[in-house]
Design a protein around this nucleic acid. Sequence first.
DNA 1: TAGTGGTCTAGACCACCGT
DNA 2: CGGTGGTCTAGACCACTAA
Lengths: 249, 249
Amino acid sequence: MKAAARGERDAPTFSPLYRQIKGLLTRSLQSGEWKPGELIPSETELATRFGVSQGTVRKAIDELAAENLVVRRQGRGTYVATHHEARAQFRFLRLRPDQGSVPGPMDSRILECRRLRAPVEAARALQLRAGEAVVLIRRLLCFEGQPTVLDEIWLPGAQFRGLTGERVAAYTGPLYGLFESEFGVRMIRATERVKAVAADAATAEALAVPVGEPLLLVERITFTYEDRPVEMRRGFYVTRGHHYRNELG
Amino acid sequence: MKAAARGERDAPTFSPLYRQIKGLLTRSLQSGEWKPGELIPSETELATRFGVSQGTVRKAIDELAAENLVVRRQGRGTYVATHHEARAQFRFLRLRPDQGSVPGPMDSRILECRRLRAPVEAARALQLRAGEAVVLIRRLLCFEGQPTVLDEIWLPGAQFRGLTGERVAAYTGPLYGLFESEFGVRMIRATERVKAVAADAATAEALAVPVGEPLLLVERITFTYEDRPVEMRRGFYVTRGHHYRNELG
DNA sequence: TAGTGGTCTAGACCACCGT
DNA sequence: CGGTGGTCTAGACCACTAA
């Protein structure tokens, strides 16, 4: 392969071949050529298709696997990652019971789901123009009957047409699984900002705690491919019997 | 190289060659053969030393770099990571100002530093026998003059002989840098549990906030090589102007 | 210019999976 | 058994750094 085709090594925009391959693979994932849960072509097939060695394809897939976009299974092949899996269940929810490492049975109750014009804060977080349509979902998460998380979820209206409270309530399984299957929006990564706040009257009532109860306020922005923000979330967590768990590498 | 020497592939304890090399490298790091900030031998030298190919050494070092044990610098070599670096400064402190991405000038005030017999909780976290000696440091962190973090730091006494409040106070730079240089204890990774709590009288006074103020309670256990716990920390964070930042991959 | 890490290749063999 | 990902090798060349 010629140097130019390898990515103009001298140019300031140089990126190694395996990164370009990674880009091509990412595009196929994003376009839906390979859907969540499906098997992608084998490394050797991709290598011949792109005219590079298997090792180069391998390194590209290594990075995709590290970013949780695909899952490797020895002897079987490489699969497109999906939110419909036990292992993906608590990737984005960091709340854990103080005793025991895995949350017990959890149930979700939809309090509200409506469309409205984006308030400035939501518009900024979702990179929408002020006044564009958004969907607001309010829901309560209970662990073993105990109200524990009160969430406000903001989504860009354009990408979630036909999303209703009934549809969400009827869906069993993780919300991100619904978004992925029904709306083709795959959540890839997120950033969270955590603060401690006192419960106001409305929040306290919903969570069945006293007014003024210290709560975790967790503000999340979730991104899909190409770092496009597609969800803003504001959650109040009761941390009497639970905590927010984090690993510092 | 023979199959047996490669790690008994069929045994249940099988680990690939590059992982065994990684183990050898880790031992050299742990033993202090290569000290923080120093250059380790080149990949080719290590390859001949261990009688494997450069690619195998490379993959071992890749993992060490991913775990922040070493830092690669193209054209120069591979260095042992150290906590005396700008880049390592905020690896373990996740507090960020609400405006602006980097904390401003920070100063640390040592409130107390004494040795005592480990309370049960500290003993359990540090895997000590009840009653063994520990060091307790209490300190206040201020951002731009504002008291923001009140920390209780528990360390195993055996590994921190000669640690005094004066010595800590005299030290400019990160605490983990002091631990690394003066006591040969390198902090590798940590887990944190975050809760929301109301400030009690003593905490409120130290942080100059009203009693009952919602605070983040951050409980950290920090590990050195071989996942040995060597620090327990309990911190109260004021989150009026700051937040705990987290990335969900 | 010499030495380092970074990329890429081609080929071999192993471990694992389903048939 | 055939096909997949996983490991290991040997060698080539590139990019970066310091002398």
